[in-house]
């Protein structure tokens, strides 16, 4: 029991279950899945599909935040990736060919890698605070995307490109598959190699890590590059889904959703230990919240108010002040019980 409460996944999962219950009450068919034309449909599938871009970005963001950093530029990178891909496809004589789409996607990803290296350079080499360093690209990035699209909304008509955002593979939405692949890749890459350990160690205690011989510079550049790479993939999914690159609105505010997903998932903004699984739950909570707002019949535009409520609630729950108060309260309830003490410690950490 104590273990369950002290797990950092506890509150996010509770939140997700509460949202599911609300949905089920408002819309009894919420959990039903059906197969139409060999494709999976249903509310849960919608949540997974619409939540995919946020999840992909949140995975990159988790690693950045674990190093005590933050990446504000992901929304702008989304827009740039979409703009690059669409303008290449539009400029090609055969927009429908797989080759064209492949070139477009690769070009978009390469540019994102350069942008990620740039962020990493500012943070790791010049030593600029992450929030400030990525603010630069956040500001200039959308302008650059506009430059690429020449201020137009680039609508593309390319069936292979459309697959990325709205296709199906083996009945499952392609975007969900991509998100799963990125998630698994990040999990394997950090947990099967020593990357995760070193990232956490740098995030928790940079000086101790330095003295232990950890090369933090390379690590920082890696995580910022990965974050930009993930953002570009999310940007391609979003653009493909709309079949258009809109430099102004593609990925607008998605950095905030991604950070929110990470925070809900229990990874502290102060850096250190991270949980990709938590981030997954966090991203699902956010997307389910949006869906819930729809199904319950609240005007969808009010979603942001609920997001504000969730951010506030999560922050207050994680705040040291709250923890201290709770700790005192729990101590006064169960004086001297050894179990209570460990639980309280775990919730602090």
């Amino acid at each position: 029991m104590n273990r369950m409460f002290s797990s950092r996944l506890f509150w996010p999962v509770v939140m997700l279950l509460v949202l599911f219950t609300i949905n089920l009450v408002a819309f009894p068919g919420f959990f039903s899945l059906e197969v139409k034309n060999g494709h999976l449909f249903g509310s849960l599938v919608d949540i997974a599909r619409n939540g995919a871009p946020t999840l992909i970005i949140a995975v990159g963001m988790t690693l950045v935040i674990a190093t005590r950093g933050i990446d504000l530029s992901v929304g702008a990178v989304c827009a740039i990736a979409g703009a690059v891909a669409c303008s290449i496809i539009l400029g090609s004589p055969e927009p429908g060919s797989i080759g064209t789409v492949a070139v477009a996607v690769i070009a978009a990803l390469l540019i994102a890698l350069v942008l990620g290296l740039w962020n990493g350079f500012l943070v790791a080499v010049l030593g600029i605070q992450p929030i400030i360093a990525t603010l630069i690209l956040m500001t200039a990035g959308r302008g650059a995307a506009m430059l690429i699209t020449e201020g137009q909304i680039l609508t593309v008509n390319s069936p292979p490109f459309k697959v990325i955002g709205s296709g199906f593979v083996l009945g499952i939405p392609v975007s969900v598959v991509i998100a799963a692949v990125i998630f698994a890749a990040a999990a394997l890459l950090t947990r099967r190699t020593a990357l995760g350990l070193l990232i956490e160690s740098v995030g928790i205690n940079p000086e101790a890590s330095r003295q232990a011989g950890v090369r933090s510079r390379g690590l920082l550049i890696t995580v910022y590059t990965f974050s930009a790479f993930a953002a570009a993939i999310a940007g391609l999914i979003l653009t493909s889904n709309q079949t258009a690159a809109d430099a102004n609105n593609t990925g607008l505010f998605i950095e905030l959703d991604a950070i929110l997903a990470v925070v809900i998932g229990g990874t502290s903004l102060a850096g250190g230990r991270y949980s990709l699984l938590g981030t997954l739950v966090g991203a699902l909570v956010i997307q389910t919240l949006v869906t819930t707002v729809y199904t319950v019949g609240i005007p969808p535009i009010a979603t942001m108010v609920f997001k504000a409520a969730v951010v506030t609630a999560v922050c207050l729950l994680q705040s040291p002040t709250t923890n201290a108060t709770f700790g005192r309260w729990r101590r006064s309830l169960g004086r001297g019980r050894p179990g209570t003490r460990t639980a309280e410690r775990a919730s602090v950490s």
Partner: peptide, 17 residues
């Protein structure tokens, strides 16, 4: 950063409301 982010969400949301 986070606290003002919450305020940003709240204010934008209230606009839509």
């Amino acid at each position: 950063f986070i606290a003002t982010l919450a305020a940003m969400f709240l204010a934008r949301g209230l606009c839509y409301v």
